[in-house]
Each structure stands twice: as structure tokens, then as C-alpha cells.
Design a protein around this nucleic acid. Structure first.
Lengths: 256, 256
DNA sequence: CGCTGTCTTGAGTCGGATCAAGATTAGTGG
DNA sequence: CCACTAATCTTGATCCGACTCAAGACAGCG
């Protein structure tokens, strides 16, 4: 699928899991051994394709499954009675949405699929069993869940205290690094970002029109290139500087 | 201390714990029995007074204790390199800050005390022991922690998608209900809110000047009365309607 | 009483919203 | 492959909410 990957056919199952997005994701937080990786196989085994724009679950719904994004993109969101929407975060390959179902079983937010995706769904009890038998995996999953909250806090700072240009830069920096960390960037460093400008506006708390103009400013500064649902960051360090972006909060192991 | 409370001297230890803010807080999520309540006594036993404006811990620090707000008020915050600050949430009596230390040990945010407070601090290992022996308490603590995140999401929606007046109304509704739920409201329904307008501005993502004017509009509408660090909500239902506030996300058991 | 923090007010500016229309692209069925 | 349709993107004009800067009023406190 991606240039740097060997052909899937040639891989053993163990290697396939090793290269899976979730193994890469958890690998950012803990060191998984082979047994750990084998243990998460059930989570990967019943995936299915989900078309763009489908709602995985609605705001204020109940959940007895834990979904994993294997390919594609999804987002958490909340809406106001008058229809205004705020996107609360993105779920990229390797992300679970949401382990808090293990505790609570209800959601305050909804999850929508953004591009055509492949998503697997695991019953809560089965998921819980894996966590119980593999403490290492459990710790990785906990830390991944914790990072979701850390990102949420950074977003609140972003939207509450940065201006339009900075917000957008910050978002692009973040999503780009996260995609890299789970092996979802292309050879040229670009990433697939199947979102329209309306969704981008709902991400950073702007209107669609103003987002469009901000995007053009960014393009004019020659910092990014965003066409055909693909994001290419031209100058990451300048982008990060403009946004006062610091990857500390992502807690990713640097492994370039 | 509050008019409706019996004199502390007359209480047995068991009753004292029952009336403690943390027991009331956890009681919003699970039903605690007497053994559960006795078990949390160690958490309450080494409290000390902390003066206003003191920093409990800084952004990006390490933590080996879990702090409990027994009286007073504190807030989580993050700052930008240029000094801009965003308050991420308030810690009111009965709140733990933050159980994620059980997993991670480092913070991305800081915590500052706002009014003179009484705060107790428990070593992580001791705290973990209690959770291990009392699953009911553990579940309550987990749900309380989960609600912190739910509130965070609501704040992102609030700051991202509501205007100045709505944001402020929403915040007042929320903090008022939360204080009620842990027995921290006065006989007349007012609550202590030891924050200045600068902090309020950092709460809802506005400047201090504009917050001042928004506050005046709210006073002009005769919906609130905020003087001398005390908040009196004059007409809750109108305030809630204006903010499109819905207490669903707080997950509090209604017990008026 | 004077200091310091906090609140309030005014004037001017600007960032971002709103409204409306047109251009471009993607998707669909024939 | 084209024609038609619906999304999406882009642009312009205008307006308003919120920010900035600056100064003054007020309150709490030693």
C-alpha cells in the first residue's frame, strides 16, 4: 500500500501484526513483545469497511463494543442544538475509540468516519480479557487513552488562546506527527487527510469561510500544500514556530 | 460552617466522612457503604491549608502524590510561551487531581490554588491500595475521572462554538451545579467563587476587558449577581436557556 | 493613609462572522 | 464519455464581536 512496505503476501502473521497501526501506536508507549502482539490479534480479526461520512455512534448513545481504526480516519464531535458542531479530536489508524466504555458504557460525544475506512469492533468483555491477561498491553492502552485527554487539553488551549492562523498550523503539526508515528505518511512525507474545509473549520473553531482564507494565507506563506485531501507540510519547523507548537504533549517516542 | 450543617463536634467519624466532599462526590457515581467510606479515611487524614494563588504543581512536572481538594478551589491550566493562559477546568471540594498519575506520573498541565484551601495529599501507592481493596471506591474514582474528561469536551465545544455571553452563562451553570452536588452551596443557593475577572477570562477564552463587559451584560439582564467572590444565580433556567446548557454531561444524580 | 491589585470605562482597531453569489470539482447515471 | 447534479471551494462586501491600549475608579490591606 505504501511504498516502503513489503508486499503483504510475503509477511507472516506475526510480522503483519507488528506492522499494524495499533502495534505501532501502542509501541509508542510501551515495548510490546511477541506474546503481547499475538494477544491483540482478535482485535484485528473482524474488521470491515466503513464508507465516508458514516456515523459510528451518535452523541449520548450506549456502547458495548470497542472500535479500532485500522485504516482511514474518524473524528469525535459534539453539536449544539442549533446545529453548530465542534470536532473534539481525530481518530487515526491504530486508535481505539474509546476505552472509557470499559468503565462507563455511555458517550457524551459522537464519532463520525471521515474517509473510507476499515474499522474493527471488539465486544467489551473480550477486550477486557486481553487487557487482563497482558498487563503490558493494558498499560499501553491506558497510556494511549491518557494521551487522548492530553491532546484534548492542548486543543482547549489552542482554540481558547491562539488566533486562526496559529490554530490551523498547530493542528497540521499535530496530525502530521501522529500520522508519522503510526506509519501513515507517504514517502514524500505527505499524509492523507480526507476532510473538507467545513470539517477543518469545526476542528479549530472557525467558520468555513474564514478557514478558507486562513488556509490560503498558509499556502501563500508556502508552509503547506493541501490539495485533493492530501496534506503536504513544506516547512515543518517554520510551521511549528508560527503555531508555538511543541510536541511534548504527544508523548511520542521519536523514531525517524 | 454552613447553616444547614450540624455542629462538627457532634459527629462521629463515620458521619464526618459521610458528609465529606469526596464522599458526596463519589456518591454521585456509586453507592458507597460504610466500609467504603471508612476506607477513604486515610485520604482525608493529612490535609493542610494552602494559601490562595499557590501553585500545587507546575506544567510538565512529575507527581507521586494524589491531591484531594477538601475545601476551597483550584484550577488546571496551561500557558503559551508568550504568557497567554487557558484554564482547563476547576477542582472543587471532593475532586481528585489527578488520578491519571496512577498510570503516567507526569503532567502536561499545572494546578493552581485559587482561594485559601485545604488540600490533602496521598502517596500514589497508598492510594492505589485503597482502590485495590475497595472496587466500589475504585469505580467511583474512575467515573469521577472520566467526568473530568467529559467536562473538558464540553468546554471545547463551549469555547469553540459559543459566543462570549453564552460561554460565561454555561460556565456559571456548570460550576453552580457541581458545587451544589457536593454540598458547597449556601442556604441562599449562592456559591463561593474566589476568582478574579482575569481568571474568568482565562476560563472562557476571552480578554479580561471583554469579560468585564460581558459580566455587566449578564448583571444587566438580572440573571446573576457576582460580587465579593460570591456567585448568586438569580434565574437558573433562563441562564441555562441562554447558554443552551444541558446538565446531561455532568452525570450527576439529581438530588435536590 | 498610601499602596497594590482589581475592576471599570472609553476610543479605536481588527479579526473573524455573516450573507450571498459564483467557480470549481467530484460524483452519478445515461 | 458526456451531461447533470450536488458538494465543495472561492471571492466580495459588509458588519459586529472581541481585542488593544490607556487611563481612571474602586477596594482591600498593611
Amino acid at each position: 500500500m505504501y511504498a516502503s512496505f513489503p508486499n503483504r503476501q510475503d509477511l507472516t502473521i506475526r510480522d503483519e501484526i507488528r506492522l499494524s497501526a495499533i502495534a505501532r501506536n501502542l509501541g509508542n508507549f510501551v515495548d510490546l513483545d511477541d506474546d503481547d502482539r499475538i494477544s491483540i490479534k482478535p482485535i484485528l480479526s473482524n474488521s470491515q469497511r466503513v464508507p465516508s461520512n458514516q456515523i459510528l455512534f451518535h452523541e449520548r448513545s450506549c456502547c458495548d463494543h470497542i472500535a479500532l481504526i485500522e485504516e482511514g480516519l474518524a473524528c469525535r464531535y459534539k453539536t449544539l442544538p442549533d446545529g453548530r458542531r465542534q470536532i473534539l479530536g481525530y481518530l487515526i489508524p491504530g486508535d481505539l475509540c474509546d476505552i472509557s466504555f470499559l468503565i462507563s458504557g455511555v458517550t457524551d460525544y459522537g464519532v463520525a468516519v471521515l474517509g473510507d475506512s476499515r474499522i474493527s469492533s471488539t465486544p467489551i468483555h473480550q477486550f477486557a480479557e486481553i487487557l487482563q491477561s497482558r498487563p503490558n498491553v493494558a498499560r499501553g492502552v491506558s497510556l494511549a487513552g491518557l494521551r487522548d485527554t492530553v491532546i484534548l487539553r492542548e486543543w482547549l488551549l489552542n482554540i481558547g488562546r491562539r488566533n486562526a492562523l496559529q490554530r490551523l498550523c498547530h493542528f497540521f503539526c499535530e496530525v502530521s506527527l501522529r500520522m508519522h508515528a503510526v506509519g501513515q505518511s507517504r514517502a514524500d512525507g505527505s499524509i492523507d487527510l480526507p476532510v473538507n474545509q467545513g470539517a477543518l473549520a469545526d476542528t479549530v473553531g472557525l467558520t468555513q469561510v474564514h478557514l478558507n482564507r486562513t488556509l490560503q494565507r498558509l499556502r501563500g506563506l508556502n508552509l503547506i500544500d493541501f490539495h485533493g485531501r492530501r496534506l503536504q507540510i513544506v516547512d515543518f519547523s517554520q510551521l511549528a514556530q508560527l503555531a508555538q507548537f511543541d510536541d511534548y504533549y504527544l508523548g511520542l517516542r521519536t523514531r525517524r
